Simulated assay, not measured.
Amino acid sequence: MYSPYVIHIGPSCCGCGACVRQCVRDNFALAGDRRTSDSAPLDDRDGGGCAATDDRAEAKKDYVCVGCMACVKWCPTHALIITPAKPVSAYIRAR
């Protein structure tokens, strides 16, 4: 299926899983091995809401992003960028 938005995950991703929990379309998964226990609250790990993990968020293979920006809003390291798949002018011309 075609996604109208493209998800870019930057190198500052700390693997906290905020995007995984907040995405309404379930477009994200964590990849890697955890070094901390899941029982500790996110705010108590590493001070900034990030866990000390080897995890990294990844977009699933056939994701369909609707552009709600929930993942961007909740990312503590601002590692996510959502961009339109087509230039905005293409959407305007299609109307």
Rank of each mutant, 00 (worst) to 15 (best):
D55Q: 12
D62Y: 09
D43E: 13
I92F: 08
R35Q: 15
G49M: 09
R45L: 14
T77C: 04
P41K: 00
S89Y: 02
R93K: 11
D55A: 08
A40C: 14
D38H: 12
R34S: 15
L30R: 04
A29Y: 07
I92Y: 05
K73T: 14
R35S: 14
R45K: 03
A70L: 12
G47V: 04
I81Y: 00
E58T: 07
R56A: 15
R35A: 15
R56V: 15
A40Q: 12
S39P: 01
S39M: 12
A57W: 02
V88T: 10
P87R: 04
E58M: 07
T53Q: 09
L80T: 00
C68R: 00
R34N: 12
V88Q: 04
I92N: 00
C75T: 07
P41Q: 03
G32W: 11
W74Y: 13
K61Y: 04
C75A: 05
R35G: 10
A59T: 06
W74T: 10
S39E: 13
D46Y: 06
T36V: 15
I82L: 06
R93L: 07
D55I: 02
P84M: 01
V72I: 08
D46F: 08
K86H: 05
D44W: 12
P84I: 01
S89H: 03
L42W: 10
R35Y: 15
A90I: 05
V88E: 06
K86D: 03
K60H: 02
R45N: 10
A85H: 05
A29H: 06
P84T: 13
